[in-house]
Write a protein that binds this DNA or RNA. Structure first.
Lengths: 231, 231
DNA sequence: TGCAAACGTTGAGCCCGATCAAATTGTCAA
DNA sequence: TTGACAATTTGATCGGGCTCAACGTTTGCA
């Protein structure tokens, strides 16, 4: 792996108070990896030796429950920190993280975490915000599961995906990586059958267009109405 | 309010690397408040001016959703930090926090947060662990709502309450503050009717003993079986 | 090229838990 | 002590979404 260009990360607010030397030094301490589609970046309960920055691609973060069920915690896209176990006071990773397309990640040993956090307030603040957002999102999902119909939950999940990882196309917003009905049902706590039926119905109404492992949102507006239980 | 005894907090791991002077100085910067039962410690969306340590009592942390529904995020008991908005990169509180019994809280202005966190690694680590635990708990609840029956969710909620805030009695574990069926249904995403029926059934089987706003667990063992769907 | 496995669609039936309704009991304030 | 209200219990009914089942389609691998 040739030397990495610090400009890869210099634009991120998290690195605002790294000067040029610090950036070079920090990037120099990292190891760059390619992770092929469907391979793990790291695994649940594994000793957390490194934390990572996703430079390119998309990963799925999932937890396997004691009973064997799988929930999809979230999808992460380029620019996000992943595997930040040390920020949560953990020595093992809490979840599986799997590349859904070929990915590029930059990893650092957890041993340098404490030094980085204490030396660079912008980094510490960025991590705090990241975790705060994840916590809020988790509570949003709890509230959804508690109070909303399956239709609304699926609509919300699609909207979240579109916001986090969507790519604009001619006709609407395309979710830019392969995602199956089973994945959607794991995100919304329902069955793939119901997801399939729901998407079929939406497709007839022109709200989405979907194919195998591919979903495009044609009318975000109507999807928002459904999510708010107004349609 | 007379001067506070630093020994109130010196035993907590979070303050492990505060020396005696630092403890005195830190406690000295705080303001002690009594919060009467059913009064807010702070309110959702309010400007976060302070963070708090709950010295005595129990508080309910709840979020009001845009649609007006209420979810109970958790109950916190003595020794826990609450209102730590700055750790999440927020300037407002994300939730209502309400005393369920008369409480004593110690509050510090958020302006000193950054200094404390950077100066005392044990504090920063403790905060990280706290947030990590909350995130994990949120994901546990998402998984429960996605995969478990109502009975199991209620059993899990009771077990969580017992772990976090239970007090041992002769016959079992008493949940040490007033909690209504409505509260339990807000925690589990069901209706108070179902909670009522379920508790009545359990009472007949000798698993719990309950009265108005009061629940005692007689057989934690059988409750665990129900939570795991083995009974 | 052909096969097997994964993915997606659709239908029928039914159960769990929500909704509507109403009586009862316990608690607090006057 | 008593009235008023909040909390709880219980019954009856209804419907959304899960389960079970079968079939069609695409992908990837040999």
């Amino acid at each position: 792996m040739a030397s990495l260009d610090p400009s890869l990360i210099s634009g991120m607010p998290m690195f605002a108070d790294f000067d040029q030397n610090a950036l070079v030094a920090f990037v120099g301490k990292g190891h760059c990896h390619l992770v092929a589609k469907n391979h793990h970046v790291f695994s649940q309960d594994e000793e957390a030796h490194s934390f990572f920055l996703l430079l390119d691609g998309y990963v799925r973060v999932e937890q396997v429950r004691p009973g064997g069920e799988v929930i999809i915690v979230r999808y992460a896209s380029a620019g996000e920190l992943i595997g930040i176990a040390p920020a949560l006071g953990r020595t093992t990773y809490p979840a599986n993280t799997i590349a859904v397309v070929d990915c590029v990640v930059l990893g650092w040993p957890c041993s340098i975490w404490r030094d980085i956090v204490s030396r660079y307030p912008s980094f510490a603040a960025g991590v705090g915000q990241t975790i705060g957002a994840r916590l809020q999102e988790a509570h949003d999902r709890i509230a959804e599961m508690a109070t909303e119909q399956v239709q609304q939950r699926i609509a919300n999940a699609l909207l979240r995906l579109a916001n986090q990882t969507g790519r604009k196309t001619e006709d609407g917003i395309l979710i830019d990586f392969p995602i199956s009905r089973q994945d959607l049902s794991d995100m919304t706590g329902t069955t793939l059958h119901t997801v399939s039926r729901t998407l079929s119905a939406w497709e007839k109404q022109g709200i989405v267009r979907s194919a195998r492992k591919r979903i495009e949102i044609l009318s975000g507006h109507r999807l928002v109405l459904i999510a708010d239980n107004r349609a």
